[in-house]
């Protein structure tokens, strides 16, 4: 049985519990096992503050999984990007790895190259595959037009994160097509949702979100689908607060789309659990 060390990331527990529930449900449906252990922050949020702190925190996570000999799986694009980035830097810079491992030794941990960091979408696409998913779909989401929003940190820098072609990715659309839904072509599918600036420069963050929504709506999308905790927080709870007058297209997390097509119960998918917006920057706009 395929087993991963599960890394939900910090934001899920309080802000987006449904993503955790749905991720577990769809992975269980495809017999993928998750090993749970308390894990710390991947370091992504603190990268603005300190590269060293961000890399050390990521190394800690990878060392926890490494001690168990399992690759990591995360449903968050930003966590994924940060873990891949730290793995890349640690692998390329022996003095950095030595320094990090000296600190980790106090916890009886050690970062080693090559434990493997995977994103949920990549596991669904590569380890299960669109064909296998299609064969399991019981309620094809026919006539539903879905815009795939990739999420920056999973896609770029491509040399480091190695998720898909950064200019013309296809994996997300292939997964959406497997559910029976119709992936729409739209121009801003690899653009930023704006969330990294939420709480720092809200006006700019919301402006970017408004553009993406308009673009997806213009392409005729019924749903804006993401595979990232932060993107969904941006397009769902933050948008409800900042852009209440922009209802289309509704945001959906990919495991919810997939779970629905597999015929999973909405309770099993955690649909209806609270979605909470992180704190705003407190400035009056």
């Amino acid at each position: 049985m395929l087993t991963f060390a599960y890394f939900p990331g910090c934001k899920i527990a309080y802000h987006l519990p449904a993503y955790d529930v749905a991720t577990r449900a769809v992975l269980a449906a495809f017999d993928i096992a998750l090993w749970d252990t308390p894990m710390n922050c991947c370091g992504y949020p603190v990268r603005h503050r300190s590269f060293e702190a961000a890399v050390f925190s990521a190394a800690w996570v990878m060392a926890l999984a490494g001690r168990r000999g399992l690759p990591l799986l995360t449903p968050c694009m930003c966590c994924y990007g940060q873990l891949k980035l730290a793995d890349h830097w640690l692998g390329k810079h022996p003095p950095l790895a030595e320094s990090v491992n000296r600190l980790l030794a106090a916890e009886d941990l050690r970062w080693e190259a090559g434990i493997g960091v995977r994103h949920l979408l990549a596991v669904l696409h590569d380890d299960i595959g669109p064909a296998a998913i299609r064969s399991r779909v019981r309620r094809p989401l026919k006539s539903l037009k879905v815009a795939a929003h990739y999420g920056c940190h999973g896609l770029r820098p491509a040399r480091v994160v190695q998720f898909d072609n950064p200019l013309a990715p296809r994996r997300f659309e292939a997964l959406i097509a497997a559910t029976g839904a119709e992936p729409v072509a739209w121009s801003e599918r690899v653009s930023c949702c704006g969330n990294p600036l939420w709480g720092k420069n809200d006006a700019l963050a919301v402006h970017m979100m408004r553009r993406r929504l308009a673009s997806a709506d213009g392409a005729g999308a019924d749903r804006l689908c993401t595979g990232c905790t932060y993107c969904h927080l941006q397009f769902a709870p933050i948008r409800r607060m900042a852009l209440p007058a922009v209802p289309r297209p509704a945001a959906v997390l990919f495991p919810h789309l997939l779970g629905e097509s597999l015929g999973l119960d909405s309770q099993v998918l955690g649909i209806g659990l609270p979605e909470r917006a992180p704190a705003s920057d407190g400035r009056k706009s």
């Binding site: 990268r47 920056c152 940190h153 896609l155 770029r156 820098p157 491509a158 950064p166 200019l167 653009s191 930023c192 704006g194 990294p196 600036l197 720092k200 420069n201 700019l204 963050a205 970017m208």
Partner: peptide, 12 residues
């Protein structure tokens, strides 16, 4: 420096 949204388009 502060408004960079860290999307890595420039770098890519």
């Amino acid at each position: 420096v502060w408004d960079c949204v860290t999307c890595y388009q420039c770098q890519e």
